[in-house]
């Protein structure tokens, strides 16, 4: 029973990751956008947490790294919003729509928003899985 889940996880994980990136990058053409893309990427990592070994999850993702990454992306998002007042009219604005290089601001904000939602769901899934291990040294005190 475990062999089936392990093999299926190894095959399915890059496919779901690619699907999430596709929905987030083509956010200004097809329906989708930032939020469903982040949830789908979170589903991919949830599958990894269930199907893989427990010790390998413990070694890869450290809590401080995820929190620092999330903080830096939040600052990056604020920088993009502030920059919108300066060069609003001249960024990626072609008139032939339904192309990829035509979003304006929504092209960047879809990718970053999807990444932020992914980090949030990753923190929640990580907190549920790690209740059976004692706290490590590089966690917050």
């Amino acid at each position: 029973m475990d062999a089936i889940i392990r093999t299926a996880t190894r095959v399915l994980f890059p496919v779901i990751l690619l699907f999430g990136i596709y929905i987030s990058v083509n956010g200004h053409i097809t329906p989708g956008g930032g939020f469903p893309a982040g949830v789908i990427l979170g589903t991919a990592f949830l599958l990894l947490a269930i199907g893989a070994d427990e010790t390998s999850i413990d070694a890869r993702i450290s809590k401080k790294n995820v929190m620092y990454l999330k903080g830096s992306f939040a600052i990056f998002l604020l920088l993009i919003v502030i920059e919108g007042y300066i060069i609003r009219n001249n960024i990626l604005k072609t008139q032939d729509f339904f192309e990829i290089w035509s979003g304006g601001f929504t092209f960047f904000l879809n990718i970053i928003g999807g990444f932020m939602v992914l980090l949030g769901i990753l923190i929640i899934v990580y907190s549920f899985i790690m209740t059976m291990y004692p706290p490590r040294e590089d966690d917050w005190k």
């Binding site: 200004h28 053409i29 097809t30 329906p31 072609t94 729509f97 979003g103 304006g104 929504t106 928003g113």
Partner: peptide
């Protein structure tokens, strides 16, 4: 905005600060 999806242009461009608060 230059994006063909009006829902995305409303959520991320016209009312972008609400999305910031939600995140």
């Amino acid at each position: 905005t230059g994006s063909a999806n009006i829902v995305n242009s409303i959520v991320w461009d016209f009312r972008g600060y609400d999305t910031l608060g939600e995140e």
